[in-house]
């Protein structure tokens, strides 16, 4: 994802979904497109919530989403899908024939 403006909740969701398979710190930072300091803060927060687990093998640490993250991921997915399910969207139609937005 690019450097577009995302909320912290969107970033948490993105990290958790990406970490469904074990990922290195570098790959998370690269994928979510933030600097190391910001990435570290987000990862530490998710670890403190028990949503992310850290495994250290030798010198390499990998991160994986835990079962507890499932509820957050499911709720987030549901909320964002609702945006297209319940809210009338944008349509290219003739002025006057458009349904109310």
């Amino acid at each position: 994802m690019s450097t577009e403006r995302r909320t912290q909740y969107e970033i948490y969701w993105e990290i958790l979904v990406f970490c469904r398979t074990p990922r290195s710190f570098t790959s998370i930072v690269h994928r979510c497109d933030f600097n190391s300091k910001t990435g570290q803060d987000y990862i530490e927060f998710l670890i403190s919530k028990g949503y992310l687990s850290r495994t250290i093998e030798g010198e390499k640490a990998t991160y994986r989403a835990t079962g507890r993250a499932g509820e957050y991921i499911a709720l987030f997915t549901e909320l964002y899908r609702k945006l297209f399910d319940t809210i009338p969207g944008f349509k290219l139609c003739c002025p006057g024939n458009c349904p109310p937005a």
Binding site: K49, Y72, L79, L83, I87, A101
Partner: peptide, 26 residues
């Protein structure tokens, strides 16, 4: 713009639910 502004306002309200989930889990 109207359609996406509406979505933005829904997201802002929905964020409360996400905060509650995060707080409950802590």
């Amino acid at each position: 713009s109207k359609a996406w502004d509406l979505r933005e306002s829904v997201i802002s309200r929905a964020e409360q639910e996400l905060v509650e989930t995060l707080e409950r889990d802590s």
